[in-house]
């Protein structure tokens, strides 16, 4: 059986909120290392990969592999009933028909309990190759969100060019063009404001801004976001969570011109 207790419901609320517009029905794969999710959007342009390590829960118990097929719209409805600071416990039997969610208020004696019916989801699981990326950029997640939103006002796609000069986000649209360039930057007092660029070779790729803006819904999960790029492979956008847990998005590049 599965029993996983999260100190704050907020974490799961934010994760589900960040991915629910991209993917609808997903398997939450539970085993003794934690709870994982991998799903593509309907058009197979983007892929979500979430890992909530067992260390992110206390306690965490999962004796055997269990796939919880959950509709994220249903899960959102139930999670709305949880206060951000509630303790959240997920429970399921070994061959479950439902997943049980319990929300406990730390301040009052209120205990809420919900069951969500599970679905049989036949999802293909993709192998994501280990990649030595040509460029890795760590930057404030709010900054990345702002750049994507600002450029989307002009164009549907953005080119991300990384060179030793820095990283340049540029777009061209009907009304004109725009770009934002960032250079490495260290803020001793506020490390969340750091921009770190690790480059082994110059990279230039073009991506759909609609997807990037969607990924940025995860910004409240982490002060920093990591962008990993290599020519002609999908972009990795990673939001690191506590205890080596993470929420990752992969986005296929635009091809040709």
């Amino acid at each position: 059986m599965l029993e996983a207790r999260l100190e704050q419901a907020n974490l799961l609320k934010k994760v589900v909120d960040a991915i629910k517009d991209l993917v609808q029905d997903c398997n939450f794969d539970c085993n003794d290392s934690g709870i994982a999710l991998q799903a593509m959007d309907n058009s197979h342009v983007a892929l979500v990969s979430m890992m909530l390590k067992s260390e992110s829960f206390s306690p965490f118990r999962c004796d055997r592999n269990i796939a919880l097929g959950i509709n994220l719209t249903s899960l959102t409805k139930v999670l709305r009933a949880a206060q951000n600071e509630d303790i959240l416990t997920l429970k399921a039997e070994d061959a479950p028909d439902v997943v049980n969610l319990v929300f406990e208020s730390a301040e009052s004696d209120r205990i809420s309990e919900y069951d969500i019916k599970l679905m049989d989801i036949d999802q293909e699981h993709l192998g994501i190759p280990e990649t030595e990326y040509a460029a890795t950029i760590s930057m404030p997640s709010a900054e990345f969100q702002r750049i994507c939103r600002d450029l989307m006002a002009l164009s549907e796609s953005v080119s991300i060019e990384c060179s030793k000069e820095g990283v340049k986000f540029a777009c061209q649209g009907d009304i004109g063009s725009g770009s934002v360039t960032l250079r490495s930057h260290t803020n001793v007092d506020k490390p969340e404001m750091n921009v770190e660029i690790d480059l082994t070779e110059p990279v230039s790729l073009t991506f759909s801004l609609k997807y990037l803006v969607g990924f940025c819904k995860a910004s409240s999960l982490s002060g920093q976001v990591k962008l990993c790029l290599s020519n002609e492979v999908p972009l990795l956008v990673e939001y690191a969570l506590a205890n080596n847990s993470y929420l990752r998005f992969y986005l296929a590049p635009k091809i040709g011109d």
Binding site: M40, S43, H125, L126, P129, P234, Y250, A252
Partner: peptide
């Protein structure tokens, strides 16, 4: 204009 690539052409079955 540029076409949109697909994730499945990069990431295959494990």
């Amino acid at each position: 204009t540029a076409g949109q690539g697909s994730i499945t052409s990069f990431f295959g079955a494990p």
